[in-house]
Design a protein around this nucleic acid. Structure first.
Lengths: 194, 194
DNA sequence: CGTTTGCTTGAATTCTGTCAAAGCAGGTGG
DNA sequence: CCACCTGCTTTGACAGAATTCAAGCAAACG
Protein backbone atom coordinates (compact mmCIF):
# COMPACT_ATOMS: atom_id res chain seq x y z
CA UNK A 1 0.00 0.00 0.00
CA UNK A 2 2.80 2.42 0.83
CA UNK A 3 5.02 1.27 -2.03
CA UNK A 4 4.26 4.05 -4.48
CA UNK A 5 4.54 6.64 -1.74
CA UNK A 6 7.94 5.31 -0.61
CA UNK A 7 9.11 5.24 -4.21
CA UNK A 8 7.94 8.81 -4.66
CA UNK A 9 9.89 9.95 -1.61
CA UNK A 10 12.99 8.13 -2.76
CA UNK A 11 12.76 9.96 -6.06
CA UNK A 12 12.94 13.26 -4.18
CA UNK A 13 15.75 12.46 -1.74
CA UNK A 14 19.45 12.25 -2.49
CA UNK A 15 19.80 8.88 -0.73
CA UNK A 16 17.21 6.13 -0.45
CA UNK A 17 15.25 5.60 2.75
CA UNK A 18 16.49 3.00 5.22
CA UNK A 19 14.21 0.23 6.45
CA UNK A 20 13.93 2.08 9.72
CA UNK A 21 12.85 5.27 8.05
CA UNK A 22 10.30 3.40 6.00
CA UNK A 23 8.83 2.05 9.22
CA UNK A 24 8.64 5.56 10.62
CA UNK A 25 6.78 6.70 7.54
CA UNK A 26 4.34 3.83 7.77
CA UNK A 27 3.52 4.65 11.35
CA UNK A 28 3.42 8.43 10.89
CA UNK A 29 1.27 8.61 7.74
CA UNK A 30 -2.23 7.24 7.94
CA UNK A 31 -4.51 6.46 5.06
CA UNK A 32 -7.47 8.79 4.66
CA UNK A 33 -10.23 8.81 2.12
CA UNK A 34 -12.17 11.97 1.35
CA UNK A 35 -15.55 11.81 -0.30
CA UNK A 36 -16.37 14.21 -3.10
CA UNK A 37 -16.92 17.72 -1.66
CA UNK A 38 -15.50 16.75 1.73
CA UNK A 39 -13.31 19.37 3.40
CA UNK A 40 -9.70 18.76 4.32
CA UNK A 41 -9.58 22.26 5.79
CA UNK A 42 -11.98 25.16 6.25
CA UNK A 43 -11.28 28.85 6.54
CA UNK A 44 -10.78 29.91 10.12
CA UNK A 45 -9.67 26.46 11.25
CA UNK A 46 -6.08 25.78 12.23
CA UNK A 47 -4.61 23.28 9.79
CA UNK A 48 -3.84 20.28 11.97
CA UNK A 49 -3.40 17.76 9.19
CA UNK A 50 -1.50 17.71 5.95
CA UNK A 51 -0.56 15.06 3.53
CA UNK A 52 0.14 13.46 0.24
CA UNK A 53 -2.46 12.88 -2.44
CA UNK A 54 -2.31 9.28 -3.56
CA UNK A 55 -5.14 9.63 -6.02
CA UNK A 56 -7.83 12.20 -6.50
CA UNK A 57 -8.24 15.94 -6.85
CA UNK A 58 -8.61 18.82 -4.41
CA UNK A 59 -8.86 22.55 -4.72
CA UNK A 60 -7.54 25.19 -2.35
CA UNK A 61 -9.39 28.50 -2.40
CA UNK A 62 -10.84 31.47 -0.59
CA UNK A 63 -14.40 32.76 -0.74
CA UNK A 64 -14.95 36.52 -1.00
CA UNK A 65 -17.86 38.55 0.39
CA UNK A 66 -19.80 38.04 -2.82
CA UNK A 67 -19.45 34.29 -2.31
CA UNK A 68 -17.09 33.78 -5.22
CA UNK A 69 -14.44 31.07 -5.00
CA UNK A 70 -10.89 32.13 -5.79
CA UNK A 71 -8.77 29.10 -6.53
CA UNK A 72 -5.19 29.39 -5.36
CA UNK A 73 -4.03 25.81 -5.91
CA UNK A 74 -5.13 22.61 -7.61
CA UNK A 75 -3.91 19.38 -6.07
CA UNK A 76 -3.92 16.01 -7.78
CA UNK A 77 -2.09 12.68 -7.60
CA UNK A 78 1.42 12.95 -6.15
CA UNK A 79 0.86 16.45 -4.81
CA UNK A 80 0.84 17.64 -1.20
CA UNK A 81 -2.19 19.29 0.37
CA UNK A 82 -2.50 21.46 3.44
CA UNK A 83 -1.94 25.05 4.48
CA UNK A 84 1.65 25.11 5.64
CA UNK A 85 1.42 28.62 7.02
CA UNK A 86 -1.45 27.70 9.29
CA UNK A 87 0.15 24.36 10.16
CA UNK A 88 3.50 25.91 11.12
CA UNK A 89 2.24 29.02 12.88
CA UNK A 90 -0.79 27.41 14.53
CA UNK A 91 -2.95 30.17 13.16
CA UNK A 92 -6.41 30.06 11.55
CA UNK A 93 -6.15 29.33 7.86
CA UNK A 94 -7.30 31.74 5.18
CA UNK A 95 -8.17 28.86 2.88
CA UNK A 96 -10.62 26.13 2.20
CA UNK A 97 -9.36 22.85 0.83
CA UNK A 98 -11.85 20.29 -0.35
CA UNK A 99 -12.01 17.20 -2.49
CA UNK A 100 -13.33 17.79 -5.98
CA UNK A 101 -13.58 14.07 -6.51
CA UNK A 102 -13.15 11.09 -4.22
CA UNK A 103 -9.58 11.37 -2.96
CA UNK A 104 -7.17 9.03 -1.20
CA UNK A 105 -4.37 10.49 0.89
CA UNK A 106 -1.62 9.68 3.34
CA UNK A 107 -1.90 12.27 6.07
CA UNK A 108 0.01 13.21 9.18
CA UNK A 109 -1.12 15.30 12.10
CA UNK A 110 0.56 18.16 13.88
CA UNK A 111 1.18 15.90 16.87
CA UNK A 112 2.90 13.28 14.78
CA UNK A 113 4.87 15.99 13.03
CA UNK A 114 6.03 17.56 16.28
CA UNK A 115 6.86 14.31 18.01
CA UNK A 116 8.31 12.27 15.20
CA UNK A 117 8.68 13.64 11.69
CA UNK A 118 10.20 17.00 12.61
CA UNK A 119 13.18 15.24 14.22
CA UNK A 120 13.92 12.99 11.27
CA UNK A 121 16.76 14.20 9.05
CA UNK A 122 15.26 12.52 6.00
CA UNK A 123 12.00 14.35 6.55
CA UNK A 124 13.71 17.68 7.04
CA UNK A 125 15.54 17.14 3.78
CA UNK A 126 12.30 16.17 2.06
CA UNK A 127 10.54 19.27 3.33
CA UNK A 128 13.40 21.45 2.16
CA UNK A 129 13.42 19.94 -1.31
CA UNK A 130 9.66 20.18 -1.69
CA UNK A 131 9.64 23.70 -0.34
CA UNK A 132 12.25 24.76 -2.85
CA UNK A 133 10.43 23.24 -5.79
CA UNK A 134 7.23 24.86 -4.63
CA UNK A 135 8.95 28.23 -4.41
CA UNK A 136 10.32 27.92 -7.94
CA UNK A 137 6.86 27.19 -9.29
CA UNK A 138 5.27 30.07 -7.42
CA UNK A 139 7.90 32.50 -8.71
CA UNK A 140 7.25 31.32 -12.25
CA UNK A 141 3.53 31.80 -11.78
CA UNK A 142 4.03 35.38 -10.62
CA UNK A 143 6.38 36.12 -13.45
CA UNK A 144 3.99 34.56 -15.95
CA UNK A 145 1.02 36.63 -14.83
CA UNK A 146 3.14 39.78 -15.04
CA UNK A 147 4.59 39.13 -18.48
CA UNK A 148 2.36 36.79 -20.46
CA UNK A 149 -1.09 37.15 -21.97
CA UNK A 150 -4.02 35.13 -20.70
CA UNK A 151 -3.78 32.93 -23.79
CA UNK A 152 -0.10 32.19 -23.28
CA UNK A 153 -0.67 31.25 -19.66
CA UNK A 154 -3.51 28.97 -20.60
CA UNK A 155 -1.46 27.19 -23.25
CA UNK A 156 1.46 26.81 -20.90
CA UNK A 157 -0.77 25.28 -18.25
CA UNK A 158 -2.18 22.87 -20.82
CA UNK A 159 1.35 21.78 -21.67
CA UNK A 160 2.70 21.65 -18.12
CA UNK A 161 -0.27 20.16 -16.31
CA UNK A 162 -2.60 18.50 -18.79
CA UNK A 163 -4.04 16.42 -15.96
CA UNK A 164 -5.70 19.52 -14.51
CA UNK A 165 -7.85 19.70 -17.63
CA UNK A 166 -8.96 16.13 -17.23
CA UNK A 167 -9.83 16.51 -13.58
CA UNK A 168 -11.29 20.02 -13.30
CA UNK A 169 -13.96 21.90 -15.27
CA UNK A 170 -12.98 25.08 -17.08
CA UNK A 171 -14.42 27.51 -14.58
CA UNK A 172 -12.10 26.10 -11.91
CA UNK A 173 -9.07 26.34 -14.18
CA UNK A 174 -10.07 29.89 -15.09
CA UNK A 175 -10.17 30.93 -11.46
CA UNK A 176 -6.81 29.30 -10.84
CA UNK A 177 -5.38 31.31 -13.74
CA UNK A 178 -6.94 34.50 -12.43
CA UNK A 179 -9.51 35.04 -15.16
CA UNK A 180 -13.25 34.53 -15.55
CA UNK A 181 -14.74 31.44 -17.14
CA UNK A 182 -16.09 33.60 -19.97
CA UNK A 183 -12.64 34.89 -20.82
CA UNK A 184 -11.22 31.38 -20.83
CA UNK A 185 -14.02 30.19 -23.08
CA UNK A 186 -13.45 33.04 -25.54
CA UNK A 187 -9.71 32.46 -25.63
CA UNK A 188 -10.44 28.89 -26.58
CA UNK A 189 -12.88 29.92 -29.26
CA UNK A 190 -10.44 32.42 -30.79
CA UNK A 191 -7.53 30.00 -30.71
CA UNK A 192 -9.64 27.36 -32.44
CA UNK A 193 -10.48 29.75 -35.27
CA UNK A 194 -6.78 30.01 -36.19
CA UNK B 1 30.73 44.61 11.58
CA UNK B 2 28.82 41.34 11.69
CA UNK B 3 26.80 42.28 14.76
CA UNK B 4 23.59 43.31 13.04
CA UNK B 5 23.74 40.30 10.77
CA UNK B 6 24.20 37.91 13.71
CA UNK B 7 21.36 39.60 15.54
CA UNK B 8 19.18 39.25 12.46
CA UNK B 9 19.90 35.52 12.24
CA UNK B 10 19.20 35.04 15.93
CA UNK B 11 15.83 36.67 15.42
CA UNK B 12 14.99 34.01 12.85
CA UNK B 13 16.23 30.92 14.67
CA UNK B 14 14.59 29.15 17.57
CA UNK B 15 17.80 29.08 19.62
CA UNK B 16 20.64 31.60 19.57
CA UNK B 17 23.86 30.92 17.71
CA UNK B 18 26.80 29.50 19.63
CA UNK B 19 30.20 31.20 19.57
CA UNK B 20 31.40 28.47 17.25
CA UNK B 21 28.58 29.04 14.82
CA UNK B 22 29.21 32.75 14.84
CA UNK B 23 32.80 32.07 13.86
CA UNK B 24 31.61 29.88 11.01
CA UNK B 25 29.38 32.67 9.78
CA UNK B 26 32.19 35.18 9.95
CA UNK B 27 34.44 32.98 7.86
CA UNK B 28 31.75 31.89 5.41
CA UNK B 29 30.19 35.27 4.63
CA UNK B 30 32.37 37.90 3.05
CA UNK B 31 31.65 41.57 2.76
CA UNK B 32 30.91 42.81 -0.73
CA UNK B 33 30.07 46.26 -1.98
CA UNK B 34 28.19 46.74 -5.23
CA UNK B 35 28.32 50.05 -7.02
CA UNK B 36 25.12 51.50 -8.44
CA UNK B 37 24.08 49.52 -11.56
CA UNK B 38 26.55 46.74 -10.83
CA UNK B 39 25.30 43.21 -11.51
CA UNK B 40 25.10 40.56 -8.85
CA UNK B 41 23.88 38.13 -11.47
CA UNK B 42 23.18 38.21 -15.21
CA UNK B 43 20.78 36.14 -17.26
CA UNK B 44 22.44 33.00 -18.60
CA UNK B 45 25.03 32.90 -15.82
CA UNK B 46 24.92 30.24 -13.14
CA UNK B 47 24.30 31.91 -9.79
CA UNK B 48 27.46 31.14 -7.83
CA UNK B 49 26.97 33.70 -5.11
CA UNK B 50 24.11 34.69 -2.89
CA UNK B 51 23.79 36.72 0.20
CA UNK B 52 22.28 39.10 2.63
CA UNK B 53 21.69 42.77 1.92
CA UNK B 54 23.13 44.83 4.75
CA UNK B 55 22.17 48.13 3.21
CA UNK B 56 21.11 49.16 -0.25
CA UNK B 57 18.63 48.18 -2.94
CA UNK B 58 18.64 45.67 -5.77
CA UNK B 59 16.12 44.57 -8.36
CA UNK B 60 15.66 41.12 -9.84
CA UNK B 61 14.16 41.04 -13.32
CA UNK B 62 14.03 39.59 -16.80
CA UNK B 63 14.31 41.44 -20.10
CA UNK B 64 11.95 40.50 -22.93
CA UNK B 65 12.64 40.62 -26.68
CA UNK B 66 11.38 44.19 -26.81
CA UNK B 67 13.99 45.11 -24.22
CA UNK B 68 11.48 45.74 -21.45
CA UNK B 69 12.43 44.96 -17.87
CA UNK B 70 10.01 42.83 -15.88
CA UNK B 71 10.69 43.16 -12.18
CA UNK B 72 10.09 40.00 -10.20
CA UNK B 73 11.60 41.03 -6.87
CA UNK B 74 12.81 44.11 -5.03
CA UNK B 75 15.52 43.58 -2.44
CA UNK B 76 16.47 46.03 0.26
CA UNK B 77 18.09 46.06 3.72
CA UNK B 78 17.74 42.76 5.57
CA UNK B 79 16.64 40.84 2.48
CA UNK B 80 18.39 37.98 0.70
CA UNK B 81 19.48 38.22 -2.91
CA UNK B 82 20.34 35.52 -5.41
CA UNK B 83 18.59 33.05 -7.70
CA UNK B 84 18.14 29.99 -5.56
CA UNK B 85 16.94 27.85 -8.42
CA UNK B 86 20.09 28.52 -10.42
CA UNK B 87 22.25 28.21 -7.31
CA UNK B 88 20.79 24.85 -6.29
CA UNK B 89 20.49 23.24 -9.71
CA UNK B 90 23.68 24.70 -11.18
CA UNK B 91 21.71 25.91 -14.16
CA UNK B 92 21.84 29.23 -16.04
CA UNK B 93 19.66 31.81 -14.39
CA UNK B 94 16.65 33.38 -16.08
CA UNK B 95 17.18 36.60 -14.14
CA UNK B 96 19.27 39.67 -13.83
CA UNK B 97 19.96 41.06 -10.39
CA UNK B 98 21.61 44.44 -10.11
CA UNK B 99 22.14 47.18 -7.58
CA UNK B 100 19.79 50.09 -7.94
CA UNK B 101 21.87 52.06 -5.49
CA UNK B 102 25.21 51.43 -3.82
CA UNK B 103 24.69 48.21 -1.87
CA UNK B 104 26.58 46.43 0.89
CA UNK B 105 26.16 42.70 1.31
CA UNK B 106 27.43 39.63 3.09
CA UNK B 107 27.79 36.98 0.43
CA UNK B 108 28.69 33.32 0.31
CA UNK B 109 29.78 31.27 -2.68
CA UNK B 110 28.63 27.90 -3.89
CA UNK B 111 31.92 26.40 -2.75
CA UNK B 112 31.53 27.72 0.76
CA UNK B 113 27.94 26.58 0.78
CA UNK B 114 28.79 23.06 -0.33
CA UNK B 115 31.79 22.66 1.95
CA UNK B 116 30.62 24.42 5.07
CA UNK B 117 27.19 25.97 5.36
CA UNK B 118 25.19 23.10 3.92
CA UNK B 119 26.41 20.83 6.73
CA UNK B 120 25.52 23.20 9.54
CA UNK B 121 22.25 22.40 11.30
CA UNK B 122 21.72 26.04 12.21
CA UNK B 123 22.06 27.03 8.57
CA UNK B 124 19.69 24.32 7.40
CA UNK B 125 17.17 25.55 9.91
CA UNK B 126 17.69 29.13 8.79
CA UNK B 127 17.19 28.18 5.15
CA UNK B 128 14.01 26.30 5.98
CA UNK B 129 12.58 29.19 7.96
CA UNK B 130 13.44 31.73 5.29
CA UNK B 131 12.14 29.47 2.55
CA UNK B 132 8.84 29.08 4.34
CA UNK B 133 8.39 32.79 4.87
CA UNK B 134 9.27 33.40 1.26
CA UNK B 135 6.68 30.86 0.14
CA UNK B 136 3.97 32.46 2.25
CA UNK B 137 4.68 35.83 0.70
CA UNK B 138 4.68 34.47 -2.85
CA UNK B 139 1.35 32.71 -2.29
CA UNK B 140 -0.15 35.95 -1.00
CA UNK B 141 1.16 37.80 -4.04
CA UNK B 142 -0.48 35.31 -6.40
CA UNK B 143 -3.72 35.41 -4.50
CA UNK B 144 -3.65 39.22 -4.44
CA UNK B 145 -3.19 39.53 -8.19
CA UNK B 146 -6.05 37.10 -8.76
CA UNK B 147 -8.51 38.73 -6.40
CA UNK B 148 -7.63 42.37 -5.84
CA UNK B 149 -7.75 45.43 -8.06
CA UNK B 150 -4.61 47.24 -9.10
CA UNK B 151 -5.43 50.00 -6.64
CA UNK B 152 -5.84 47.61 -3.73
CA UNK B 153 -2.55 45.93 -4.48
CA UNK B 154 -0.79 49.26 -4.68
CA UNK B 155 -2.20 50.40 -1.36
CA UNK B 156 -1.33 47.14 0.29
CA UNK B 157 2.24 47.39 -0.93
CA UNK B 158 2.46 50.92 0.39
CA UNK B 159 1.35 49.67 3.80
CA UNK B 160 3.44 46.51 3.87
CA UNK B 161 6.67 47.77 2.32
CA UNK B 162 6.78 51.55 2.50
CA UNK B 163 10.56 51.39 2.13
CA UNK B 164 10.16 50.27 -1.50
CA UNK B 165 8.62 53.63 -2.28
CA UNK B 166 11.54 55.47 -0.75
CA UNK B 167 14.12 53.45 -2.61
CA UNK B 168 12.60 52.82 -6.03
CA UNK B 169 10.94 55.08 -8.60
CA UNK B 170 7.33 54.42 -9.56
CA UNK B 171 8.01 52.75 -12.88
CA UNK B 172 9.98 50.03 -11.05
CA UNK B 173 7.22 49.53 -8.50
CA UNK B 174 4.67 49.39 -11.31
CA UNK B 175 6.57 46.63 -13.06
CA UNK B 176 6.89 44.72 -9.80
CA UNK B 177 3.12 44.95 -9.38
CA UNK B 178 2.54 43.82 -12.95
CA UNK B 179 1.19 47.05 -14.34
CA UNK B 180 2.50 49.91 -16.46
CA UNK B 181 3.85 53.13 -15.01
CA UNK B 182 0.98 55.02 -16.65
CA UNK B 183 -1.61 52.89 -14.88
CA UNK B 184 0.12 53.36 -11.56
CA UNK B 185 0.25 57.10 -12.09
CA UNK B 186 -3.45 57.25 -12.97
CA UNK B 187 -4.42 55.15 -9.95
CA UNK B 188 -2.57 57.64 -7.79
CA UNK B 189 -4.29 60.58 -9.46
CA UNK B 190 -7.75 59.05 -9.04
CA UNK B 191 -7.17 58.08 -5.42
CA UNK B 192 -5.98 61.63 -4.64
CA UNK B 193 -9.18 63.09 -6.07
CA UNK B 194 -11.20 61.27 -3.43
C1' DC C 1 -38.00 13.80 -16.40
C1' DG C 2 -36.70 17.78 -14.17
C1' DT C 3 -32.67 19.80 -12.07
C1' DT C 4 -28.04 20.80 -11.80
C1' DT C 5 -23.67 21.75 -13.76
C1' DG C 6 -20.77 23.35 -17.18
C1' DC C 7 -19.96 25.82 -21.41
C1' DT C 8 -20.78 29.36 -24.83
C1' DT C 9 -22.16 33.78 -26.78
C1' DG C 10 -23.63 38.64 -27.03
C1' DA C 11 -23.71 43.44 -25.65
C1' DA C 12 -22.36 46.97 -22.71
C1' DT C 13 -18.95 48.69 -19.61
C1' DT C 14 -14.69 49.23 -17.28
C1' DC C 15 -9.93 48.69 -17.02
C1' DT C 16 -5.39 48.60 -18.84
C1' DG C 17 -1.87 49.07 -22.31
C1' DT C 18 0.23 51.68 -26.04
C1' DC C 19 1.93 55.64 -28.16
C1' DA C 20 3.09 60.27 -28.06
C1' DA C 21 3.98 64.56 -25.93
C1' DA C 22 5.13 67.56 -22.35
C1' DG C 23 6.80 68.99 -17.89
C1' DC C 24 9.84 68.71 -13.98
C1' DA C 25 13.44 67.97 -11.15
C1' DG C 26 18.58 67.00 -10.21
C1' DG C 27 23.10 66.64 -11.84
C1' DT C 28 26.84 67.47 -15.05
C1' DG C 29 29.86 69.62 -17.93
C1' DG C 30 31.13 73.61 -20.41
C1' DC D 1 26.46 80.06 -13.41
C1' DC D 2 23.84 78.57 -17.06
C1' DA D 3 22.40 75.29 -20.55
C1' DC D 4 21.61 70.83 -21.32
C1' DC D 5 20.88 66.05 -20.32
C1' DT D 6 18.80 62.29 -18.26
C1' DG D 7 15.59 59.95 -15.47
C1' DC D 8 11.05 60.16 -13.82
C1' DT D 9 6.21 61.42 -13.81
C1' DT D 10 2.00 62.93 -15.74
C1' DT D 11 -1.59 63.45 -19.22
C1' DG D 12 -4.39 62.67 -23.40
C1' DA D 13 -6.30 59.96 -27.11
C1' DC D 14 -7.08 55.64 -28.73
C1' DA D 15 -7.17 50.60 -29.14
C1' DG D 16 -7.45 46.30 -27.09
C1' DA D 17 -8.50 43.15 -23.37
C1' DA D 18 -11.15 41.50 -19.61
C1' DT D 19 -15.26 41.76 -16.62
C1' DT D 20 -20.09 41.84 -15.86
C1' DC D 21 -24.69 40.66 -16.72
C1' DA D 22 -27.86 38.01 -19.16
C1' DA D 23 -29.51 34.39 -21.87
C1' DG D 24 -29.44 29.92 -23.94
C1' DC D 25 -27.98 25.23 -24.71
C1' DA D 26 -26.15 20.55 -23.91
C1' DA D 27 -24.80 16.86 -21.11
C1' DA D 28 -24.88 14.52 -16.81
C1' DC D 29 -27.31 13.02 -12.79
C1' DG D 30 -30.46 11.61 -9.44
Amino acid sequence: MYDNFIAYINRQLTKPLTEEEIEIIKSAFTYKKLRKHQYLLQEGEVCKMAGFVIKGALKQYTIDKAGKENIIALLIDNWWAGDRESFVKDEPSAFYIDAFEETEMFVFTKNVYNETLSHQPFFKELLMILSEKHTFRLLKRIHATNTQTAEQRLMELENSYPAFFQKFPQHIIASYLGMTKETLSRIRANAAKR
